[in-house]
Design a protein around this nucleic acid. Structure first.
Lengths: 256, 256
DNA sequence: CAATCTTTGTGCACGCGTTCACAAAGGCAT
DNA sequence: ATGCCTTTGTGAACGCGTGCACAAAGATTG
């Protein structure tokens, strides 16, 4: 994503693979749970199982951070928690703004997982004047006119967009202009941002569609197992809600 | 994810790469927008730009679906909408259940993006008896005791988990036992499911942590640009909220 | 009908991520 | 101190995904 930043070789050797970075929060969560149970050390096998990954992958991931861990014993839980937190930048406080206080924005404002990891909701912002001054999750909603001053005053560098799709790019542009360099986008829109700005996208509808694809494939597979060698695609399926052949390689008619 | 299903070679040639499947919803969204503007055809270049991907990648993606598209012209918008919808299984109706009607569950219930793509919220389910019978987004909340009968009656195969982390695995087990084969998990928990069940995870906290990592890296880079060759890690940073060296390769003291 | 121009579809090479398998390293018992 | 046992850290092979670059295909124009 975002082809930018190919100049400057990232200080060299400090280059942690993106896939590894994406797994570090998983490890951190599992380690935190162990820490709360006062478990002193953990092996790569145990931790990998708790995080739902392969143990070889976990060891390789940790090898990018350095040689923490003791052969024959495992990893010191507290030490790893600290190292990963530091690597992810969670030892410092990250103020974030949430723009678009609809159902989803309000849900995020109430979400406890933010505050627990060094993230602090600095402000809730919405374009609707009727919302201004109202409290959501104990935080006052401010009008979008104040966006720039809020970001500037609080030194915010991370923004969360939960507006409708139509307003997302506009809000994004204002956030970027105000100095935001990381955006978490929940709106169903492809945001275009300048180089140096990171965007991560969370799209509920897309996730469901991917599930539907696999679900359909599974259904087709199960059907193929019942009827070992179907001759035509139109095998008159009487299952619930099927209105197409599972293996419809027939070109179908061009609608236009 | 989920190593299962390596037997049965997927009817062969029907094997669409996972990365491609994940992009199909993006194309579909862009195409739908074009369709609403009554645009008859679109080139791979235009569509790729609208979807935020490389045009070569888009063409290769479409090549897995078949040779739709006309050389020298482009793709027929309506035809592609139909083909992708069919491939994703969106031509049929997918009833889903949402378990855990807190802030997030309610937000999802209200989310319009579901219904517009063939997904129908068949039921809202919560363990809190006080919620039972209450209406959320025009849908009655049912008690978790009815989970199995609801799934069975409505033929639900997709479940969404928006419970607290502690209840997620338990809910997941019940969903699977009741016949659910696809799960969208918003709880901060690694779910363990039997083979044949697909799980997709959406974790807001993890996304923010990944952003924080890159944000920290950018800050360190900017700092390194100001001071071309720093000698020690403790360069006395006086920036907002910094409490650690940007390039802390020093082993630091073992806490235990 | 022939020439030209546009755009698709894809062979190929490259790079990243994953997994295997094993040597090195440290603890522990004798 | 020595040998054994456990577990890490990593070299190497493999597979998937991406992007380039171009030939094939069809539309379009004269």
């Amino acid at each position: 994503m975002a082809t930018g930043r190919n100049h400057r070789p990232a200080t060299r050797s400090r280059g942690i693979p993106e896939a590894t970075v994406a797994r570090l929060p998983l490890y951190l969560r599992a380690l935190t749970a162990l820490s709360e149970r006062s478990v002193p050390t953990v092996s790569s096998e145990e931790l990998a199982s708790a995080a739902g990954v392969n143990s070889a992958k976990l060891r390789k991931d940790f090898s990018y951070l350095g040689s923490y861990g003791t052969r024959g014993v495992g990893y010191d839980v507290e030490y790893l928690v600290y190292q990963i937190s530091r690597e992810l930048g969670l030892t410092q406080d990250w103020p974030v703004v949430i723009v678009g206080i609809g159902n989803l924005g309000a849900a995020l404002a109430n979400y406890g997982g933010f505050a627990s990891r060094g993230f602090r909701v600095a402000a809730l912002i919405d374009a609707d004047p009727a919302l201004s001054g109202r409290q959501v999750a104990g935080i006052e909603v401010r009008h979008v006119d104040e966006l720039e001053s809020i970001i500037d005053t609080n030194g915010v560098s991370i923004g969360v967009i939960t507006t409708p799709g139509g307003a997302a790019q506009q809000v994004c542009d204002r956030l970027v202009a105000a100095g935001i360099t990381s955006i978490l986008n929940f709106a169903p829109t492809v945001l275009s941002v300048p180089d140096g700005v990171d965007v991560r996208k969370v799209d509920l509808s897309i996730e469901l569609q991917i599930l539907a694809f696999h679900e359909q494939r599974k259904a087709a597979e199960a059907l193929a197992q019942d009827v070992p060698e179907p001759l035509a695609a139109e095998a008159a399926p009487s299952g619930p809600g099927r209105d197409q052949g599972p293996d419809g390689d027939i070109p179908a008619v061009m609608p236009a």
